[in-house]
Protein backbone atom coordinates (compact mmCIF):
# COMPACT_ATOMS: atom_id res chain seq x y z
CA UNK A 1 0.00 0.00 0.00
CA UNK A 2 1.40 3.36 -0.94
CA UNK A 3 1.65 6.29 1.41
CA UNK A 4 -0.71 8.35 -0.69
CA UNK A 5 -3.59 5.91 -0.44
CA UNK A 6 -3.03 5.59 3.28
CA UNK A 7 -3.26 9.30 3.86
CA UNK A 8 -5.91 10.40 1.39
CA UNK A 9 -8.28 7.51 0.91
CA UNK A 10 -10.63 5.93 3.34
CA UNK A 11 -9.03 2.80 4.75
CA UNK A 12 -10.64 -0.32 3.38
CA UNK A 13 -9.95 -3.98 3.85
CA UNK A 14 -8.48 -6.18 1.17
CA UNK A 15 -11.88 -7.54 0.17
CA UNK A 16 -13.53 -4.14 0.10
CA UNK A 17 -10.73 -2.84 -2.09
CA UNK A 18 -11.07 -5.72 -4.53
CA UNK A 19 -14.80 -5.10 -4.72
CA UNK A 20 -14.35 -1.42 -5.48
CA UNK A 21 -11.79 -2.11 -8.18
CA UNK A 22 -14.02 -4.73 -9.78
CA UNK A 23 -16.99 -2.37 -9.90
CA UNK A 24 -14.84 0.41 -11.35
CA UNK A 25 -13.41 -1.86 -14.02
CA UNK A 26 -16.89 -3.05 -14.90
CA UNK A 27 -18.17 0.49 -15.41
CA UNK A 28 -15.09 1.50 -17.35
CA UNK A 29 -15.59 -1.45 -19.70
CA UNK A 30 -19.31 -0.71 -19.95
CA UNK A 31 -18.51 2.86 -20.90
CA UNK A 32 -15.89 1.81 -23.47
CA UNK A 33 -18.08 -0.90 -24.99
CA UNK A 34 -19.60 1.16 -27.84
CA UNK A 35 -16.20 2.49 -28.86
CA UNK A 36 -14.81 -1.04 -28.67
CA UNK A 37 -17.56 -2.42 -30.87
CA UNK A 38 -16.95 0.35 -33.38
CA UNK A 39 -13.21 -0.27 -33.43
CA UNK A 40 -13.54 -4.03 -33.73
CA UNK A 41 -16.06 -3.89 -36.53
CA UNK A 42 -14.24 -1.17 -38.42
CA UNK A 43 -11.38 -3.64 -38.81
CA UNK A 44 -13.48 -6.50 -40.20
CA UNK A 45 -14.36 -7.25 -43.81
CA UNK A 46 -18.10 -6.73 -44.42
CA UNK A 47 -19.08 -10.46 -44.62
CA UNK A 48 -17.70 -11.04 -41.13
CA UNK A 49 -20.16 -8.45 -39.77
CA UNK A 50 -23.23 -9.42 -41.78
CA UNK A 51 -22.64 -13.12 -41.29
CA UNK A 52 -21.43 -13.25 -37.73
CA UNK A 53 -21.26 -11.92 -34.23
CA UNK A 54 -20.89 -8.18 -33.77
CA UNK A 55 -18.86 -8.74 -30.62
CA UNK A 56 -16.38 -11.20 -32.09
CA UNK A 57 -12.84 -10.11 -32.76
CA UNK A 58 -11.88 -9.79 -36.45
CA UNK A 59 -10.60 -13.05 -37.96
CA UNK A 60 -8.94 -11.32 -40.89
CA UNK A 61 -8.17 -7.78 -39.72
CA UNK A 62 -8.13 -5.23 -42.52
CA UNK A 63 -7.70 -1.48 -42.83
CA UNK A 64 -9.73 -1.34 -46.03
CA UNK A 65 -12.86 0.08 -44.36
CA UNK A 66 -10.76 2.98 -43.01
CA UNK A 67 -9.25 3.69 -46.43
CA UNK A 68 -12.66 3.51 -47.97
CA UNK A 69 -14.24 5.81 -45.38
CA UNK A 70 -11.46 8.33 -45.76
CA UNK A 71 -11.03 8.48 -49.53
CA UNK A 72 -13.33 6.34 -51.67
CA UNK A 73 -16.75 5.95 -50.06
CA UNK A 74 -19.69 7.24 -52.03
CA UNK A 75 -20.95 10.44 -50.39
CA UNK A 76 -23.17 12.62 -52.51
CA UNK A 77 -22.45 12.46 -56.20
CA UNK A 78 -18.79 11.48 -56.17
CA UNK A 79 -16.92 8.74 -54.43
CA UNK A 80 -14.61 10.99 -52.44
CA UNK A 81 -14.79 9.54 -48.98
CA UNK A 82 -14.83 11.85 -45.96
CA UNK A 83 -11.59 13.62 -46.89
CA UNK A 84 -13.00 16.80 -48.49
CA UNK A 85 -15.65 17.14 -45.78
CA UNK A 86 -13.03 16.75 -43.09
CA UNK A 87 -11.26 19.67 -44.70
CA UNK A 88 -14.54 21.60 -44.77
CA UNK A 89 -14.98 21.00 -41.05
CA UNK A 90 -11.45 22.18 -40.34
CA UNK A 91 -11.97 25.30 -42.47
CA UNK A 92 -15.16 25.98 -40.53
CA UNK A 93 -14.10 25.13 -37.01
CA UNK A 94 -10.73 26.90 -36.86
CA UNK A 95 -11.90 30.41 -37.78
CA UNK A 96 -15.19 29.97 -35.90
CA UNK A 97 -13.41 28.96 -32.68
CA UNK A 98 -10.70 31.61 -33.07
CA UNK A 99 -13.13 34.44 -33.77
CA UNK A 100 -15.67 33.54 -31.10
CA UNK A 101 -12.94 33.07 -28.49
CA UNK A 102 -11.32 36.41 -29.36
CA UNK A 103 -14.65 38.21 -29.26
CA UNK A 104 -15.52 36.52 -25.99
CA UNK A 105 -12.22 37.64 -24.48
CA UNK A 106 -12.77 41.19 -25.70
CA UNK A 107 -16.33 41.21 -24.37
CA UNK A 108 -15.20 39.86 -21.01
CA UNK A 109 -12.49 42.52 -20.84
CA UNK A 110 -14.92 45.34 -21.56
CA UNK A 111 -17.62 43.99 -19.26
CA UNK A 112 -15.24 43.80 -16.30
CA UNK A 113 -12.61 46.49 -16.78
CA UNK A 114 -14.29 49.15 -18.92
CA UNK A 115 -17.75 49.10 -17.45
CA UNK A 116 -20.35 51.36 -18.95
CA UNK A 117 -23.90 52.20 -17.86
CA UNK A 118 -26.07 49.20 -18.60
CA UNK A 119 -23.21 46.70 -18.73
CA UNK A 120 -25.25 44.30 -16.63
CA UNK A 121 -28.02 44.33 -19.21
CA UNK A 122 -25.66 43.64 -22.06
CA UNK A 123 -24.12 40.73 -20.18
CA UNK A 124 -27.57 39.44 -19.28
CA UNK A 125 -28.64 39.46 -22.91
CA UNK A 126 -25.44 37.72 -23.99
CA UNK A 127 -26.05 35.08 -21.33
CA UNK A 128 -29.59 34.70 -22.58
CA UNK A 129 -28.23 33.74 -25.99
CA UNK A 130 -26.69 30.63 -24.41
CA UNK A 131 -30.14 29.27 -23.71
CA UNK A 132 -31.86 29.87 -27.04
CA UNK A 133 -32.52 26.50 -28.70
CA UNK A 134 -30.92 26.17 -32.15
CA UNK A 135 -34.17 25.27 -33.87
CA UNK A 136 -35.82 28.59 -33.04
CA UNK A 137 -33.32 30.64 -35.00
CA UNK A 138 -33.11 28.44 -38.09
CA UNK A 139 -35.58 30.33 -40.27
CA UNK A 140 -34.62 33.89 -39.26
CA UNK A 141 -30.98 32.93 -39.62
CA UNK A 142 -31.56 31.49 -43.09
CA UNK A 143 -33.30 34.70 -44.12
CA UNK A 144 -30.49 36.81 -42.69
CA UNK A 145 -27.77 34.79 -44.41
CA UNK A 146 -29.72 35.11 -47.66
CA UNK A 147 -29.90 38.87 -47.29
CA UNK A 148 -26.18 39.03 -46.61
CA UNK A 149 -25.45 36.82 -49.60
CA UNK A 150 -23.82 34.19 -47.39
CA UNK A 151 -26.40 31.45 -47.76
CA UNK A 152 -24.96 27.98 -48.38
CA UNK A 153 -21.37 29.16 -47.99
CA UNK A 154 -18.54 28.49 -45.58
CA UNK A 155 -18.35 32.12 -44.33
CA UNK A 156 -22.07 31.98 -43.63
CA UNK A 157 -21.67 28.84 -41.54
CA UNK A 158 -18.72 30.37 -39.69
CA UNK A 159 -20.79 33.47 -38.96
CA UNK A 160 -23.60 31.39 -37.49
CA UNK A 161 -21.22 29.51 -35.22
CA UNK A 162 -19.44 32.67 -34.13
CA UNK A 163 -22.72 34.36 -33.26
CA UNK A 164 -23.84 31.34 -31.28
CA UNK A 165 -20.47 30.96 -29.60
CA UNK A 166 -20.16 34.52 -28.31
CA UNK A 167 -22.61 33.94 -25.48
CA UNK A 168 -20.60 31.17 -23.89
CA UNK A 169 -17.16 32.55 -24.62
CA UNK A 170 -18.19 35.91 -23.12
CA UNK A 171 -19.51 34.14 -20.03
CA UNK A 172 -16.23 32.29 -19.57
CA UNK A 173 -13.97 35.30 -20.02
CA UNK A 174 -16.13 37.72 -18.08
CA UNK A 175 -16.11 35.47 -15.02
CA UNK A 176 -12.38 34.90 -15.36
CA UNK A 177 -11.55 38.57 -15.76
CA UNK A 178 -13.86 39.54 -12.89
CA UNK A 179 -11.28 37.99 -10.57
CA UNK A 180 -8.42 39.73 -12.41
CA UNK A 181 -7.13 42.60 -10.22
CA UNK A 182 -8.31 45.92 -11.59
CA UNK A 183 -5.25 47.60 -10.09
CA UNK A 184 -3.19 45.94 -12.85
CA UNK A 185 -5.30 47.66 -15.48
CA UNK A 186 -4.97 50.96 -13.64
CA UNK A 187 -1.22 50.54 -13.37
CA UNK A 188 -1.05 49.89 -17.11
CA UNK A 189 -3.18 52.96 -17.77
CA UNK A 190 -0.77 55.13 -15.79
CA UNK A 191 2.09 53.43 -17.63
CA UNK A 192 0.51 54.71 -20.83
CA UNK A 193 -1.02 51.58 -22.34
CA UNK A 194 -4.29 52.06 -24.19
CA UNK A 195 -7.39 49.89 -24.46
CA UNK A 196 -6.01 47.32 -26.88
CA UNK A 197 -2.46 47.41 -25.57
CA UNK A 198 -3.68 46.52 -22.06
CA UNK A 199 -5.72 43.71 -23.58
CA UNK A 200 -2.81 42.29 -25.58
CA UNK A 201 0.03 42.80 -23.17
CA UNK A 202 -1.61 42.42 -19.75
CA UNK A 203 -4.88 40.50 -20.02
CA UNK A 204 -4.34 37.96 -22.79
CA UNK A 205 -0.99 36.60 -21.57
CA UNK A 206 -2.62 35.43 -18.33
CA UNK A 207 -5.78 34.13 -19.99
CA UNK A 208 -4.31 30.73 -20.88
CA UNK A 209 -6.44 28.51 -18.62
CA UNK A 210 -9.75 30.08 -19.57
CA UNK A 211 -8.82 30.25 -23.25
CA UNK A 212 -8.17 26.49 -23.20
CA UNK A 213 -11.53 25.86 -21.54
CA UNK A 214 -13.25 28.09 -24.06
CA UNK A 215 -11.47 26.55 -27.05
CA UNK A 216 -12.27 23.00 -26.00
CA UNK A 217 -15.91 23.91 -25.47
CA UNK A 218 -16.27 25.78 -28.74
CA UNK A 219 -14.32 23.26 -30.77
CA UNK A 220 -16.39 20.34 -29.50
CA UNK A 221 -19.67 22.14 -30.06
CA UNK A 222 -18.91 23.45 -33.50
CA UNK A 223 -17.24 20.29 -34.74
CA UNK A 224 -20.11 18.13 -33.53
CA UNK A 225 -22.84 20.45 -34.76
CA UNK A 226 -25.17 18.86 -37.25
CA UNK A 227 -28.21 21.12 -37.41
CA UNK A 228 -26.50 24.30 -38.59
CA UNK A 229 -24.28 22.31 -40.91
CA UNK A 230 -27.19 20.57 -42.60
CA UNK A 231 -29.24 23.79 -42.75
CA UNK A 232 -26.76 26.41 -43.86
CA UNK A 233 -23.75 24.71 -45.41
CA UNK A 234 -25.07 23.86 -48.86
CA UNK A 235 -23.16 21.29 -50.89
CA UNK A 236 -19.75 22.94 -51.05
CA UNK A 237 -19.21 23.69 -47.38
CA UNK A 238 -20.81 20.54 -45.99
CA UNK A 239 -19.06 19.60 -42.72
CA UNK A 240 -17.98 16.16 -41.60
CA UNK A 241 -21.06 15.49 -39.46
CA UNK A 242 -23.44 16.02 -42.36
CA UNK A 243 -21.27 13.93 -44.69
CA UNK A 244 -21.21 11.13 -42.14
CA UNK A 245 -24.98 11.23 -41.98
CA UNK A 246 -25.25 11.13 -45.74
CA UNK A 247 -22.87 8.20 -45.89
CA UNK A 248 -24.72 6.19 -43.29
CA UNK A 249 -28.19 7.12 -44.52
CA UNK A 250 -27.55 6.50 -48.23
CA UNK A 251 -30.36 4.27 -49.51
CA UNK A 252 -28.59 2.70 -52.46
CA UNK A 253 -26.32 -0.33 -52.54
CA UNK A 254 -25.09 -2.48 -49.69
CA UNK A 255 -24.82 -0.96 -46.19
CA UNK A 256 -21.13 -1.13 -45.45
CA UNK A 257 -21.21 -1.17 -41.65
CA UNK A 258 -17.47 -1.55 -41.34
CA UNK A 259 -16.98 1.65 -43.36
CA UNK A 260 -19.65 3.43 -41.34
CA UNK A 261 -17.89 2.53 -38.10
CA UNK A 262 -14.55 3.72 -39.41
CA UNK A 263 -16.12 6.95 -40.67
CA UNK A 264 -17.81 7.60 -37.32
CA UNK A 265 -14.52 7.19 -35.48
CA UNK A 266 -12.77 9.48 -37.98
CA UNK A 267 -15.45 12.11 -37.39
CA UNK A 268 -15.00 11.93 -33.63
CA UNK A 269 -11.22 11.86 -33.66
CA UNK A 270 -10.43 15.61 -33.73
CA UNK A 271 -12.46 16.44 -30.61
CA UNK A 272 -10.76 13.58 -28.83
CA UNK A 273 -7.42 14.93 -29.94
CA UNK A 274 -8.24 18.44 -28.71
CA UNK A 275 -9.00 17.07 -25.25
CA UNK A 276 -5.80 15.08 -25.10
CA UNK A 277 -3.57 17.90 -26.37
CA UNK A 278 -5.18 20.99 -24.82
CA UNK A 279 -6.06 19.28 -21.58
CA UNK A 280 -2.38 19.37 -20.70
CA UNK A 281 -2.44 23.15 -20.74
CA UNK A 282 -4.98 23.42 -17.95
CA UNK A 283 -2.26 24.97 -15.87
CA UNK A 284 -3.25 26.77 -12.75
CA UNK A 285 -1.49 29.47 -10.86
CA UNK A 286 -0.57 31.67 -13.82
CA UNK A 287 -1.82 34.60 -11.77
CA UNK A 288 0.52 33.89 -8.87
CA UNK A 289 2.61 36.82 -7.79
CA UNK A 290 0.77 39.64 -9.53
CA UNK A 291 -0.72 40.81 -6.29
CA UNK A 292 -0.04 40.12 -2.66
CA UNK A 293 0.43 36.50 -1.84
Amino acid sequence: MSVATQTTAVRTGRIGRALIVTVLIFFALFYLLPLGVMLINSLKPLPEITGGNMMALPREPTLDPWRSAWSTAQIGVQATGLKPYFLNSILMVVPAVAISTMLGALNGYVLTKWRFPGHRWVFGLLLFSCFIPFQIVLIPMARLLGLMGLAGSLPGLILVHVVYGIGFSTLYFRNYYAAFPTELVRAAMIDGAGFFRIFWRIMLPVSGPIAVVCIIWQFTNIWNDFLFGVSFAGLDAMPMTVALNNLVQSSTGVREYNVHFAAAILAALPTLLVYIVAGRYFVRGLMAGSVKG
Binding site: R186, M189, I190, D191, A193, I202, V206, S290
Partner: peptide
Amino acid sequence: VHPSRRNIAMVFQSYALYPNMTVGQNMTFG
Protein backbone atom coordinates in the same frame (compact mmCIF):
# COMPACT_ATOMS: atom_id res chain seq x y z
CA VAL B 1 -5.48 64.94 -18.90
CA HIS B 2 -5.08 61.17 -19.31
CA PRO B 3 -3.30 59.45 -16.39
CA SER B 4 -0.33 58.54 -18.56
CA ARG B 5 0.23 62.18 -19.53
CA ARG B 6 0.07 63.68 -16.03
CA ASN B 7 3.70 62.73 -15.44
CA ILE B 8 2.88 60.83 -12.31
CA ALA B 9 3.80 57.36 -11.09
CA MET B 10 1.81 55.31 -8.66
CA VAL B 11 2.60 52.51 -6.24
CA PHE B 12 -0.46 50.41 -5.54
CA GLN B 13 -1.46 48.66 -2.35
CA SER B 14 -1.40 45.28 -4.10
CA TYR B 15 1.79 46.31 -6.01
CA ALA B 16 -0.05 45.50 -9.27
CA LEU B 17 2.98 43.91 -10.93
CA TYR B 18 2.25 42.40 -14.34
CA PRO B 19 2.43 38.65 -13.67
CA ASN B 20 3.48 37.66 -17.18
CA MET B 21 6.50 39.99 -17.35
CA THR B 22 9.87 39.81 -15.66
CA VAL B 23 10.84 42.38 -13.07
CA GLY B 24 12.86 44.26 -15.68
CA GLN B 25 9.99 44.30 -18.16
CA ASN B 26 7.62 45.39 -15.40
CA MET B 27 9.79 48.34 -14.56
CA THR B 28 10.36 49.52 -18.13
CA PHE B 29 6.82 48.89 -19.43
CA GLY B 30 5.84 52.52 -18.84
